[in-house]
């Protein structure tokens, strides 16, 4: 790891002013992606601004219509929250599938979203539920937030403060995990919202990162059961391809995972 200067602000305002005063600063949330990247010397921020102890970024609030989670909340906290499990069980399940137990003890919702890895889990829930990403500057709809591989609507120095997830009528998350990295080779978050509309978001498969599978949404809108997807195929163009799976393999997995997710609605 290259040299860096560590800062631990006690308020968001202090974090923002530290950021603007540094030449090439990065915010440090749980550090479970940023620190490995720095160890590989693939990132070399001059300054690290630790957000992990900011009380302003903590907490889970559940209302009749939404679950709002502080950006600094760890995956382990979301995975074991009885409130989240009652309101959106698929979200608690998703948090429990990130990485491994030690990673979940440090990694955070905000960190995952700010990084927007194309195989990360949380982007699927944010897009799949049409969540709103709140920041130190504004509120961003899921559709506008994700802008391609490791790219988001966040501006320099903008910090995610919390995320509001609308509570669906039913939802499930199905993940085909890479057995070594635990990242999604392909994973699908499928939801039927309280107004009856269907949202299906796919992570791990798209070459532009998380996306909504419109063909699958249309088929489920007509008939919200797994068998509705029997004839639905996804175009391999636009899918990621690497040594772990071809574009055609991932395209097929999208339908398979979507079927399982809709199957999960029953239970």
């Amino acid at each position: 790891m290259y040299e860096t200067t560590y800062h631990r602000p006690s308020t968001l305002a202090e974090a923002a002013s530290l950021f603007s005063g540094a030449s090439e600063a990065r915010f440090l949330a749980g550090g479970q992606t940023l620190l490995p990247t720095m160890k590989q010397r693939l990132a070399a921020p001059t300054d690290l601004i630790d957000l992990s102890r900011l009380a302003e970024l903590k907490g889970i609030e559940v209302t009749a219509d939404a679950v709002t989670i502080g950006a600094g909340t760890t995956h382990a906290t979301v995975a074991t929250s009885a409130e989240v499990a009652r309101a959106i069980p698929a979200l608690a399940k998703l948090a429990g599938l990130v990485g491994d137990p030690a990673v979940r003890h440090l990694g955070t919702l905000g960190g995952s979203l700010a990084n927007n890895d194309p195989a990360a889990d949380y982007p699927a829930a944010v897009l799949g539920l049409g969540a709103t990403v709140h920041t130190t500057k504004r509120s961003i709809a899921a559709e506008e937030y994700f802008q391609g591989l490791f790219t988001t609507a966040l501006e320099e120095g903008e910090i995610i403060t919390r995320v509001s997830f609308p509570i669906p009528a039913r939802a499930d998350y199905q993940k085909f995990r890479h057995p070594a990295s635990r990242y999604a080779l392909t994973a699908v978050f499928a939801a039927q919202m309280k107004d009856g509309s269907i949202r299906v978001a796919v992570t791990g498969a798209g070459s532009d990162g998380v996306f909504r599978a419109e063909a699958i949404e249309a088929a489920l809108a007509a008939n919200p059961t797994p068998s509705a997807l029997d004839g639905v195929s996804i175009d391999p163009a636009g899918m990621l391809a690497d040594i772990h799976g071809s574009a055609a393999y991932r395209a097929n997995l999208v339908t398979v995972m979507a079927k399982r997710a809709v199957g999960g609605w029953a239970g």
């Binding site: 560590y6 550090g31 620190l35 630790d50 030690a102 990673v103 003890h105 440090l106």
Partner: peptide, 11 residues
Amino acid sequence: AVKSCTLLAAQ
């Protein structure tokens, strides 16, 4: 449980 290689001492 955390991975002590993925945490700065300062943190």
